[in-house]
Structures are given as C-alpha cells and as structure tokens.
Design a protein around this nucleic acid. Structure first.
Lengths: 142, 142
DNA sequence: CTCCAATCGTTGGTGCGTCCAACAATACTG
DNA sequence: CAGTATTGTTGGACGCACCAACGATTGGAG
C-alpha cells in the first residue's frame, strides 16, 4: 500500500494524481524539444493573436509579466520569436513569432495532441467526454 | 478571453485548472494552521501506522526521504511529533505523533473534509461519484 | 569474522508553475 | 505641468516533487 487510506479517494488527491500524471507525460514530451509549458503557451498566444506586447501575452496566456519576460528571453535566444521596441509606445515590446517559431509550434501542437490521447487512454470515448465536461464545471469558479 | 483557444478544453489544461483550484482551496484552508500538505500527510501516516521510521513514512505517504526529514523537522519543532534514535537499529529514527499532533490532525481532517465539499460544490452527487471514478481510472498507471 | 552491499537520515540542489514587490522608463490624465 | 498608470525587468518566494552524495550503521556472503 503506497498511499494513505485517509487521502486516497479524496477528490483533491485524485485530482492531483491525475494531473501529476498528465503533466509528467506532457513535460516528458515537451522536453524532447527542450521546451516547457510556458514556451508553448507564449508561442500559441502569438500564433493566435499576432504580434503582441508582453503584457498582452501575459493576459492571453494567463501568465505573470515577469514570467513572460523570462520565457521570451528563451524563445528569442532560440530564434523562435523576435522582440523589438514598439515605436508607438516605447514602454512596450512588440513580440512576433518567427517562421522557425511557427514550425516549432506545429511540432509542439502535434506532440500535445498525442499527449492528450495518452492521458485519456484508460478511458472510453464516452467516459472521456463525461470527464471533460465535469472538469470544465469544476474549473469554472476559479 | 483569458485563455488560449488552443489550450482550453484540452484534458491536460482542464486537469491542471481543476487541480489548481482544488489545491488553492486546500492550501488556503491549511495555511490557517500554518501547515502544508506534507505536514498533513506525515501526521496522517503516523496516526494510521503508529510510530515509524522516516523511510517507512516516506513510503506510506509517497514522499521523498529528504522531504520527510524537512517535514519532521517542522512537526517536531511544533511539538506535534517526537523523533528519537531507534535503539534497535541506530540508522533509524522512531517518529511518533504526540497528543498535540493528534489534536491538530483532527482539526486538519475536518478542514480537509470541508475542502472536498467546496471543491465538488459545482457538481451534483451523481456527477461527483462519476468524476471520482473516472479520475481514479486516470490515476492508475502512475 | 571480515568485507561488501544495502539501508537510513541528512544536506543541498534542480525543476516547474505560480505569484509578488520593487524599480526605471514611458505614457496618459487632469 | 503634476501626478497616476502601464510596461518591462529583476530578484525573490512558495509548494510539491525529484535526485545525488555523504557518513553512519546494519546485514549477508564468503
């Protein structure tokens, strides 16, 4: 027995276990590209909304501004995004995804899709739909 | 729109959101006692199995030995557990929960139960049962 | 009985995701 | 113009989970 009777079966425990497993699969898959969740989220935000300020990226991707800064430091050093001062508002940077960034994002997208499938693998199609619906209900009220 | 179309609805995202919400409720509730999840898990392990070595606690509670050490440092300094060298095997410590520890655990147990309810509050009884069952399936294969 | 392998506790470090406080530079408002 | 707000950056923190190394100790193989 590897876990406590008092804890096993508790919703908070089951949620954290299931999430831990999903995140492990995800970060494993992403690590093959030397990338973390933050990198993907920023790339996806840029692909979706086009060139944006870092504050806008943070808002869209649900990240703190300071974390956006660090993440873009990485992405820029890898040539996946460019960061230039906004001439119209010199407080802002205009961050844009590069061709290499789009290509990498495409790979990450495919990887992400595979991970979703691996995560849900123990469930039938019916169960998957039910689970997602219930999780969505649980998520509202953040 | 606060989140990415590409991410919302994805199982990994929903899981992490739902889990984040649950953990936030939990750590909020525990923080009123100045306690974290590790403290609860160690106290619960000791209450369940009686005086144990730190290695046994780690095994039962699913924690790394090093984290057990740090957690017991805290609990001992708060008077919730005692740690004495095992005369029968001087590599081991025998860790025991104190009366104060039992009392604290009782409070934490009640708190934990309230949190479970708060987490599941958006769901009907039927939905709760279904969710727990599906999460359990997902958790297997850790 | 000796030597080697295994175990225990401890220290110190890594990683990820999340969050906060402070600061200088710049923009906007009254 | 004065004061307020926003932006990016830096540096730090937290919680949970891991890992590597070390000395001390024990147990087993020969």
């Amino acid at each position: 027995m590897s876990v406590l009777d008092r804890v096993v079966g508790r919703p908070t425990w089951l949620l954290s276990r299931a999430n831990a497993r999903a995140q492990a699969l995800l970060s494993d898959a992403f690590s093959e590209f030397g990338v973390r969740g933050y990198h993907f989220r920023v790339l996806a935000a840029l692909d979706q909304d086009g060139p944006s300020s870092q504050a806008a990226i943070g808002h869209i991707a649900g990240m703190d501004r300071s974390d956006v800064t660090a993440t873009i430091d990485n992405l820029a050093s890898w040539g996946l995004v460019t960061r230039v001062l906004d001439p119209a508002d010199r407080r802002r940077n205009v961050v844009s995804i590069t061709d290499a960034g789009v290509a990498r994002l495409k790979e990450l997208d495919a990887t992400l899709a595979r991970v979703q499938d691996a995560v849900l693998q123990p469930l039938t199609a019916q169960e998957r739909a039910t689970l997602l619906q219930l999780l969505a209900k649980l998520g509202r009220g953040f």
